[in-house]
Design a protein around this nucleic acid. Sequence first.
DNA 1: CAAAATGTACTAACTAGTTCGTATGTCAAG
DNA 2: CTTGACATACGAACTAGTTAGTACATTTTG
Lengths: 212, 212
Amino acid sequence: MAERSENGRKNDPEQTKEDILLVATQEFSTHGLAGARVDSIAEKTRTSKRMIYYYFGSKEGLYLAVLEQSYRKIRSLESDLHLSNLEPEEALRTLISTTFDHDEANPDFVRLVSIENIHHAAHMLRSEAIRDLNVSVIETIAGILERGFDHGIFRRKADPIDIHMMISAFCFFRVSNRYTFGTIFRRNLSDGDTIERHRGMIADAVVSYLKS
Amino acid sequence: MAERSENGRKNDPEQTKEDILLVATQEFSTHGLAGARVDSIAEKTRTSKRMIYYYFGSKEGLYLAVLEQSYRKIRSLESDLHLSNLEPEEALRTLISTTFDHDEANPDFVRLVSIENIHHAAHMLRSEAIRDLNVSVIETIAGILERGFDHGIFRRKADPIDIHMMISAFCFFRVSNRYTFGTIFRRNLSDGDTIERHRGMIADAVVSYLKS
DNA sequence: CAAAATGTACTAACTAGTTCGTATGTCAAG
DNA sequence: CTTGACATACGAACTAGTTAGTACATTTTG
């Protein structure tokens, strides 16, 4: 096991990169791309600014790395659900709950996506990796909708991307607009009861829409 | 009518302020608070940077003025609808269409709200004006829901703020996340057919939720 | 003329990115 | 199992360019 030498230094590239990414995620998500300070990130790291440029090349390079890592973390979640074994309605409700809980648990991710939208998704466009990720969700939804329609449970033939958007919109907005919404209506959206009510609400809304 | 003098200068404080605000709205909404450049705003104005500081004191002061003006522009819209004359369901559908069209027509506003959320709504908190604006929407929705429930049209007793959030979420997300969503799913959300379909979709979803 | 409105040119502070030098790990040769 | 040479990993201090904000002078307007 590698120990620290007298002056405290020890080479551990993987750990160093992880450390930088963790701090940078926090900084970018709370200050935006332009608002984030490389010096500030460096300070909070156990390494130096030099290493940020050594590993990530530039501020934008670091930002892109943060964005990619955030998207990569989600991929695993949805594919682990095995929704095809469930009844269509239950499958849909499970998928919605998962999306809901993910956004609720990952405000940093939500904020990064908001930031990326402010920049017209310019960085995402340049990243091959990110674009391919969300495709599987659509296939999952398409399957559920088809089965539901065939079983006569859903009366409406809806477009899977539209349904995904409907779900995402609600789950995402709750987190992304938490502060302005909370300020205007004096309501704490991270409150336990509210979370429970909203989780059920979006599921009921989507299901009743498909059944009507 | 005031004419320009020989060197081209003419005093017109109101026009100058309006001009600055217009340019600043554009700049802040496309670059964010930190990303916006005061010099860049000044250049695009027909006046100078000096005047920005003369009228708005600081970059943040200008940002706050932009934010307040954007919110003020909406207030008039909703109060002009006279929804109490309409049947509950039609009233609700009209309100939803109005919200939908507003967000679709005002991407700058949507982006400013997103930006404000990244800053934890810190500036909005300091502005007395903004907080009071959206209260009337809730009263309108509350009235519609109550009438609908009494008439037996809506089977579900829902919280008006929740319903407002459901509507806002969908309308807002379509615009705020247009770029990332469009990039991932290769879909243009500003396309005419898509707009029509989504406008109907959110209305149907809310109505069927309340009826179920 | 006085007050309000405006333009020009400047500055102090900040910030992304770099330079230069040092430490650490590893792997082959002795 | 040392040694030493080379690549990788790292730190401190510096720099060039940018940016929010200002001092000072001038013009317009009532």
